[in-house]
Design a protein around this nucleic acid. Structure first.
Lengths: 354, 354
DNA sequence: TTGTACGCGTTATCAC
DNA sequence: GTGATAACGCGTACAA
């Protein structure tokens, strides 16, 4: 006896065979009633659907996956959900894939490549049909593992014009170059930089490269004492600005921040120090979070449509699953939001006497 | 011929049988080498693992799920990832479940009960073993559907002391009661309210009930013209405050906001209107986002540890899967962060002449 | 410790 | 339009 040899108290879950028996049809027809309803006579279909509903039956996913070789699962691997940027990307990706009947598996690496690899293995072991991964700085062999399984994937958030991976993102270096040029055009020559950790983070590295490159073109280099790397928090933004302003002169007249949170921290600290923004000091952010436009003064920052990144990644993966070999996604545009935290330098920032 | 009858150009994926043949063992031993390695002789195990790695084999999830009746999948259904609150909950839930080898499926309803139901069906159809759902205001039959499948679940974010569902969250009504009492204790008697949409949202409804209840105990009612419901955005916070302040006297001396975003908007608008906070007007938020403490003045708000909510939900579901019938999660504490945006009312807010 | 043999529940193929 | 039947790939009692 296959099931219930020890008479169970919990009734066994119904199977397609039970529905078929009750409807007086074969399991094949039950399956068709659910998957290709147009190929089943309307009366029979309705009867099957009703009986299935009564019995509380739906196709068992494992059986269906085994026979059809489809799981309708796609994995997305991100550093953390605690940043709006990634949350937006995942949200949009999920919405777009849901339209195609695909469900999203989520994994967070917490910026740890070992966790990233573990999450990835778990996803492959759950049968994901495709993957979206933030960042290309992964452990050696990670992409080989994905390719070996012939799972289509896309690298999200980053963007390079390269055949190495398909990318759905924007040009981080270009975006920061654009910030730098805005400040250079205003006449700034002494820069400070407050940024989030760059190790293992190709996006941040690209941004720094873009900034340094644009400055170098003008014969300008960042002084080490004017560069602070740390947690992407409001608090570190404050600390970073304070440390820079306490260095000996010449003090920078422009502070570039790795994201808006740091920039808002810097703005708050500038006010606390009595430094006038933008007259004495220009400050730029990155991301254009909701609060940025409402700061005092409103923050000049870079807007990137993260939801669009998620959508493009989703569309690309859908195309992979449906067509086979789609074109790589186009890079997402970025827009410098010129507001009141940047201006031509009028005077050097002065600290009040202690 | 089972496979490759039409000679395929793409080599077929390796199966356990291939690994077994290469290692000179049976498929049973291959399976054991992966699932219960301690029951396989070390040399043989290592040999199998090496061959599997070389061949790029890992157990096919559908076959494994079918035979073991385990998918190691848990679903989480939230309104949106665009709010830190839910993103934090999901992030912590995912981290905690990953420790147990469980992968998380995510679905967003966008505050739409039809989408919620569709997402839920999809998750059940993918074989989730348990579910975490934000909010108990779901379509009729949703919870019946879950129970019919005997899938353990927990309602996240909300909390009621009720046998109807297991809850992992906090007492929304109590939290708002606490905000109201703080303002009442300061001497406020005229209140305004700016809040996010309450329809279909049991958390918001509970909060409003808590507020109105605490006021009613003191014989106070909210005037309709002092209540504004709309998008949970900075902008609506500004608009709401402006509308309230433009009503005829007596104007409220305290504004309760449904979340920090609205409260920060209100704070910004108050500054724009020349209304002194907290001397003329007290403003409260909810959530204690990072920016709240750095506003001018720092925002009095309610802190809830959303990551802890996610963790408790995860622990409860793990216990369901492992033990069977754990105790319901304890409610998460909330803490009123007393800062500078609230004070005893000194004078009524005055609008400058237009 | 290892192998044998069977069941897991569905879908796809091919007749009819 | 429908039914019979053979995969699908693995886990696991049971036997050895």
């Amino acid at each position: 006896m296959a099931r219930g040899s020890k008479e169970r108290n919990k009734a066994a879950a119904p199977r397609a065979l039970d529905v078929a028996a009750a409807a007086g049809v074969s399991t094949a027809t039950v399956s068709r009633a659910f998957n290709t309803p147009e190929k089943v006579a309307p009366e029979i279909r309705d009867k099957i659907l009703k009986i299935a509903a009564d019995l509380g039956w739906m196709p068992h996913p494992a059986g269906a996956a085994l026979a059809s070789r489809r799981t309708w699962l796609v994995g997305v691997l991100i550093p953390t959900l605690d940043h709006d940027v990634f949350a937006s990307q995942v949200g949009a990706l999920q919405a777009r894939l849901a339209e195609a009947g695909i469900t999203v598996l989520i994994g967070c690496s917490n910026y740890d490549s070992a966790q990233a690899e573990a999450q990835l293995r778990a996803m492959l072991a759950r049968g994901v049909e495709a993957l979206a991964i933030v960042g290309e700085a992964q452990r050696e062999g990670v992409f080989d593992m994905i390719r070996a399984r012939r799972v289509p994937y896309v690298v999200m958030y980053s963007y390079r014009d390269s055949a190495e991976h398909p990318f759905a993102g924007f040009d981080n270096a270009g975006a920061f170059r654009s910030v730098a040029r805005h400040l250079l055009d205003l006449g700034h020559r002494d820069f400070g930089l407050i940024h989030q950790p760059a190790g293992d983070n190709d996006r941040v590295q690209a941004r720094l490269d873009g900034l340094r490159g644009a400055l170098a073109e003008n014969g300008i280099a960042l002084r080490p004492q004017h560069v602070h790397e740390g947690a992407p928090s409001l608090l570190f933004g404050r600390q970073g600005l304070k440390a820079i302003m306490e260095t000996s002169e010449p003090r920078p007249t422009a502070i570039v921040c790795g994201n808006d949170t740091l920039a808002m921290g810097a703005l708050i600290e500038a006010r606390a120090l009595g430094i006038k923004v933008p007259d004495e000091l220009s400050i730029t952010g990155f991301d254009d979070v909701a609060m940025a436009a409402h700061m005092e003064p409103p923050l000049t920052t870079m807007r990137v449509d993260n939801a669009e990144i998620g959508r493009r990644a989703a569309d690309y993966l859908r195309a992979c699953l449906e067509d086979g070999a789609p074109d790589d996604p186009q890079p997402v545009e970025f827009h410098l939001m010129l507001r009141k935290s940047t201006a031509a330098p009028r005077s050097r920032p002065v600290l009040p006497d202690k």
